[in-house]
Design a protein around this nucleic acid. Structure first.
Lengths: 364, 364
DNA sequence: TCGAAGTATCTAAGCGCTTTGATTTATCGC
DNA sequence: GCGATAAATCAAAGCGCTTAGATACTTCGA
């Protein structure tokens, strides 16, 4: 790999100055058509590819955005090491198992990432995706931050001090509201209305009255979902007889809660879950206890992940517009670059209730 | 956004030279521990984030790899424009429809991309993902090429002249074998054995004898799959009574072929399809004609996309190790960077036959 | 106490591009 | 055909970092 040709080579070949070469690529109309042809031809012959590093340095902008994602399934030991050396090579069999089981469907993070990608492509922005295990997120994050003009992150995927530091330098947008960092741009959804609507549906359409909210890690998103639930109850004049089990993070404990309830034989009319993942776990636990959904108890989720469409009974849920959320993050970032001093934006996108089988409906 | 602090600021604050600052980050052991602390503290206070552009320029390496993917569903009008302006904003409703229908499951390209991402993260490599519509792939591709040390591409997602040009400058690895570019590194799978094995299964385990190969765009992958099919037939001493319908690209024409066969009432014993996508189309067409799979006819695919696991009847297929393929691309790229002069590698990964319902098996 | 041999740090020269302001060349009215 | 104005091109100064090679500082044996 001999070092590639530079503006200097192209300029010499075309018999012009390097400035003209640069103009030919960046501001073509400043260059006479005939000269442009000349330069383009020279570039073509030489196989010239402009260096983004040099451009970025000169311009003070890289022209790329970053996304810091994460992977539920990334084995911590399978992580990135500072020295760039091989930690352990994941065994092929592990990969297959992982993909065939858990990654059968795109998850929330995948769908959002797609939105970010598509929007970046549409707007002609390069996109750097990073991610990784919690161990050394900070180093990775910092590396990415040095390469981009703006960064989109999932909350809690990175320590907030690190984030704050980066936000001093480039715009950062968070998806889903983290409790801290009120001064960053945010993309969220209307959690309150979503859960309120699905809860009202259970009450009004199915005549259920003893509802229980369950699941969710502590976050303002989930706080809002609970609030929507409680609001719907009180609007309907129903007492809140079932103590909400929130936060109720790990898969383990959701399973245990449900199992305990089953053993006591004290099923509510419905489990209103904070997330689809929780709902799936709940349905598994119910199935294990021989409880039929939706006949014996209704279950609803929140997110609208693909898996919920396919399982039986299919999952009634509140769908977040994930791709749109990703796209909106990109919008915010680019907008922020043009208007650094605008007050932080918190875009709240609408959600949509999707009625399927798990609440007792019979979708077409 | 005031311009961020640079090595100069950090150096001044710490009372050292910029070289020492640089060493502190890049070769920490060349710096006395006490000095290092000093520099780190200064960097922390200032919120210093090293510029990758400057580093890349100075080192002649960006430290990033690129992936050029594509999206089946990317509306051409929804594409990237050279001027970076807004073409048309995709309507939210369109997004939802798209995601809920066609993108319900991760596709081949998605799974490979995941592999690339995970391996990059694991190895501490930044990853740039680009993609887009065929319209101006070339400009986008060139932009990406200028940003990375190596590029992974899907075949036919880019014009091969453009690719050749880029390959003059940085290593390029193709996944799945394109007909041209024998001089690039490649990752493929063992197409021949895969189809041979699945065909043998139909013959030996289910006693089928009249088999028809169907589907696939022209490519060396699919050539090999056909060869595997024919090989199995001849090994079994079966005549090739059914003219293979390959290439048979568009969804439309696969549907038509199947419909015509159904109308003639001349079903073969099995359709051996070049890809899962084809197999799904075939099964749709058969269902439309009132033909039962696998009772009236068996169907097999190739790829192992997630959708095949979930549909009924579930799809017997040959699974490619897609994540592993993505990871291998990264391996090849990094290896090539260290050994520019090694002869082109063509890694061929093994595949696995997955027996499900569509061939007549009863998976546990 | 002195010089040799390490260590630690620094000086300075790029890396390949963009872009301002200067300079040259083309265009036009009269 | 001439100056005035506009258009095209150019020279040169960075952008922020890395890294030889030079220099300063330690350490240590004799």
């Amino acid at each position: 790999m001999a070092k590639g040709p530079t503006v200097y080579h192209v300029a010499e070949r075309a018999g012009v100055s390097i400035a003209t070469v640069s103009f030919t690529f960046r501001q073509p109309d400043k260059v006479k058509a005939s000269t442009r042809e000349l330069v383009l031809a020279a570039a073509e012959e030489l196989g010239y590819v402009p260096s983004a590093s040099a451009r970025g340095l000169a311009r003070g902008r890289t022209g790329a955005l970053g996304l810091f994602a994460y992977d539920y399934l990334l084995d911590p030991a399978d992580g990135i090491r500072g020295d760039g050396q091989d930690p352990h090579e994941p065994a092929a069999a592990d990969l297959e198992r992982r993909n065939e089981d858990l990654r059968l469907f795109p998850l929330y993070v995948d769908e959002v990432q797609r939105g970010v990608e598509l929007e970046c492509w549409r707007r002609g922005q390069a996109l750097l995706v990073g991610g990784g295990n919690p161990e050394n997120n900070e180093a990775v994050l910092s590396d990415i931050a040095g390469r981009v003009d703006g960064l989109a992150v999932f909350p809690r995927s990175v320590p907030s001090e690190a984030l704050a530091r980066i936000a001093r330098r480039i715009p950062v947008v968070e998806i889903s509201e983290s409790v801290h960092n009120r001064e960053l741009d945010h993309v969220t959804v209307d959690n309150v209305s979503g859960v309120r609507a699905i809860t009202e549906h259970l009450i009004a359409a199915h005549g259920l009255s003893e509802l229980m909210f369950l699941g969710g890690m502590p976050s303002s998103d989930n706080d809002e979902r609970l609030a929507g639930f409680l609001g719907a109850l009180s609007d309907a004049g129903l007492p809140n007889t079932r103590e909400p089990k929130y936060p109720c993070g790990s898969e383990q404990s959701v399973t245990e809660v449900v199992r305990a309830i089953c053993e006591q034989g004290s099923l509510p009319d419905a489990f209103v879950c904070a997330t689809d993942q929780d709902a799936l776990v709940v349905m598994d636990a119910l199935a294990a206890a021989g409880v039929n959904v939706p006949r014996d108890v209704a279950v609803t989720g929140f997110d609208g992940i693909a898996a919920g469409r396919v399982i039986r009974p299919s999952l009634t849920t509140v769908r977040q517009p994930m791709e749109q959320m990703g796209r909106t993050m990109v919008d915010l970032l680019l907008d922020r670059l043009d208007h650094p001093d605008k007050p932080p934006a918190a875009i709240r996108l609408p959600v949509r209730v999707i009625l399927r089988e798990s609440c007792g409906c019979q979708p077409g």
